[in-house]
Design a protein around this nucleic acid. Structure first.
Lengths: 236, 236
DNA sequence: AAGCGTATCGTACTTAGTACCACTTACTTA
DNA sequence: TAAGTAAGTGGTACTAAGTACGATACGCTT
């Protein structure tokens, strides 16, 4: 039959690792399961990977590599938006990655390139260094935080929410968490609900606010605090 | 000798667990180390905790319990701000907690109470259900994401940044990440730099933007509009 | 004193990471 | 072609960690 196991390689190892993590979660990714998935024995992996920690670092970098880079020089708002949407998509595809980001603090080349590009668009977009720091921090906190919530929220769609909400509520006198109950029944459990849909709202909210602070680009629909450019009337 | 180990209790077990995690990280928290810290043997813990998973769930809830609750009925902006600042402080004090939040999806009572209070202030503040969802998502994504970044960023203060920046840069031609280099040397490595300082900027940016969308409260200089009649929870 | 529930733990099994070393192969180089 | 060598593979076994399964110990009641 079809000679499954051609030669191992770092690439194949990483690929298989991502596959396992995607399919069965980080917990299922053990050196043994990984080896098994490659029709190899555990110890063979150590020719391509120093140890499991290094493997995890490599996985994080691999995920970052999937995120679209913003184009330095383009419209900062559009570019930051695009890469943020991409980041969320990618991280949602590999939910385990976020857990790693927290722990691993050895950024790989893709990660560094990513950060560099983000700083690049902002600087090129006219942000001062301090404002670049602010903007970058806000946007990324939001993006990562959103994904974090998506991952940790027990529910996501209205469907799955029902089960969870029910199970949570049955344990307590329903009067204990009135707002939670209202929120669950009147909003989350409604047909079209999908938590992920919230993402772009917040992203635009933040980008608009940044644009106002920055004084350039086009805040799409917000009236700034102190009569800077007024009206949703497309400034510029 | 001085009778160290008085009776165990769930409370003492949890307390010790938090202590170990705070001091040496989540990785150091094993049933054995935990038992040792309590002058007990591993298996004794299982009288107070069903298994390690349940222990972790309990720890998360314990951390949430430390966060100041917003006061339902108070000025939504001020309350949300206060609890957000508190949340960041608490999570920064227990950096390991965030890693757990991702994994554990069994909210405990403190966690539920927390969510309920947040939804409560927003509703009482006049937010519609959909806007409450938006606001809550944005704010929490930001808060959690910020902490996540704080935790994962290898550097924090200018001091520690130097070492990291140096080590990162030496491996590569310095021309590979020009913006990163500029950012590191011109901003991060400057004397007064402290990543955590960015937090309130972003938080206020978001709260202001929400206030604008909401039309009520005081973003900074906007006058409240028509108070939307609302009635907290308590269906029927 | 007998009995009982609660708390504590000794032992041992299981899963996972990985050190150590042997073996196998393919590719030199003479 | 024969011998040498580097690269790749894996068998064995040790260690750490979670936890099942019963004991055992320690009070309190009756």
């Amino acid at each position: 039959m079809g000679e499954q196991a051609r030669q191992l390689s770092r690439e194949r190892v990483l690929e298989a690792a991502v596959g396992i993590a995607d399919a069965h979660g980080l917990g299922a990714l053990t050196m043994r399961s990984l080896a098994a998935g490659l029709n190899a024995k555990p110890m063979s992996l150590y020719h391509y990977i120093r140890n499991k920690d290094e493997l995890l670092d490599a996985l994080v970098d691999r995920v970052f590599a999937e995120i679209e880079l913003p184009e330095v020089g383009g419209d900062w708002r559009a570019e930051v938006r695009r890469r943020s949407v991409s980041a969320r998509t990618v991280l949602a595809r590999h939910p385990w990655a976020l857990a790693l980001v927290e722990t691993r603090t050895n950024p790989g080349p893709a990660t560094l390139r990513h950060h560099d590009a983000m700083l690049g668009v902002l600087r090129a977009g006219g942000f001062s260094l301090p404002m670049t720091a602010h903007a970058y921090a806000v946007v990324d906190a939001y993006v990562f935080g959103f994904v974090l919530q998506e991952a940790s929220l027990p529910f996501d769609s209205a469907d799955s929410a029902n089960a969870v909400a029910d199970s949570i509520m049955e344990g307590f006198a329903s009067g204990d968490y009135p707002h939670l109950v209202e929120f669950a029944t009147q909003h989350v459990q409604q047909p079209g609900y999908h938590f992920g849909g919230q993402f772009e709202f917040g992203l635009d909210l933040i980008l608009d606010a940044l644009a106002v602070h920055h004084g350039a680009s086009h805040p799409s629909s917000i009236r700034p605090e102190n009569g800077v450019p007024q009206r949703p009337g497309r400034s510029r």
